[in-house]
């Protein structure tokens, strides 16, 4: 089973991308997409050492909707900051201690941080225990770190790592 279908989530995702690219739902294209989605993970198995397991899909869906909402709000925040007086900005670096351990969860967290209000993940420490976060305008880095941990890290940990 695991050798024939090493990444059960990747296969439908690739088929979906194939159908989007051709923007069609003809049966022939669905079959071709599924075939490609089945063959590509097998041929590239060496590049995907980690198997992905989603434990709670509903938490993931809620996380994605929270993230999309935050992205839109982030854009308005950052737009206001850019149009305001740039001398009044208070950029700050902060260190975010990580509870996550899997590669995928860490990179998803880093991506979410970069996409949301005025924060940017800048560097992962070599021992994978800290993430350096840069904030565009933040007077209280501690509070920001706490918010990130509560809002993004906890659902990711629930979804990708068993507690």
């Amino acid at each position: 089973m695991t050798r024939l279908l090493p990444h059960p989530i990747l296969t439908p995702a690739l088929a979906g991308v194939w159908l989007l690219m051709n923007s069609t739902i003809e049966p022939g294209h669905i079959l071709l997409g599924l075939l490609l989605g089945w063959m590509i993970p097998i041929l590239t198995i060496r590049f995907w050492p980690e198997t992905v397991r989603i434990h709670k899909p509903w938490v993931l869906l809620r996380y994605i909707s929270v993230l999309l909402f935050d992205i839109v709000m982030a854009n308005f925040t950052v737009a206001r900051l850019i149009l305001g007086n740039p001398d009044r900005l208070k950029p700050a670096f902060a260190r975010l201690p990580l509870d996550l351990t899997s590669d995928l969860a860490i990179s998803l967290l880093a991506n979410s941080i970069t996409l949301t209000p005025g924060t940017l993940s800048a560097k992962l420490s070599e021992d994978r225990k800290f993430l350096i976060v840069h904030a565009l305008n933040e007077t209280d880095p501690e509070a920001m770190v706490a918010t990130i941990k509560k809002r993004y890290e906890r659902p990711l940990k629930e979804v990708f790592e068993t507690c």
């Binding site: 992205i71 854009n75 737009a79 850019i82 740039p86 996409l115 940017l120 840069h134």
Partner: peptide, 26 residues
């Protein structure tokens, strides 16, 4: 437009990085 404006207006590299990555994606 605002994303690129950030590239011109902001003072140091790390703050400049915020403009394009956010404003431009939306």
């Amino acid at each position: 437009f605002i994303g690129s404006l950030g590239l011109v207006r902001l003072k140091d590299f790390y703050t400049r990085l915020h403009g394009p990555t956010k404003a431009t994606t939306l």
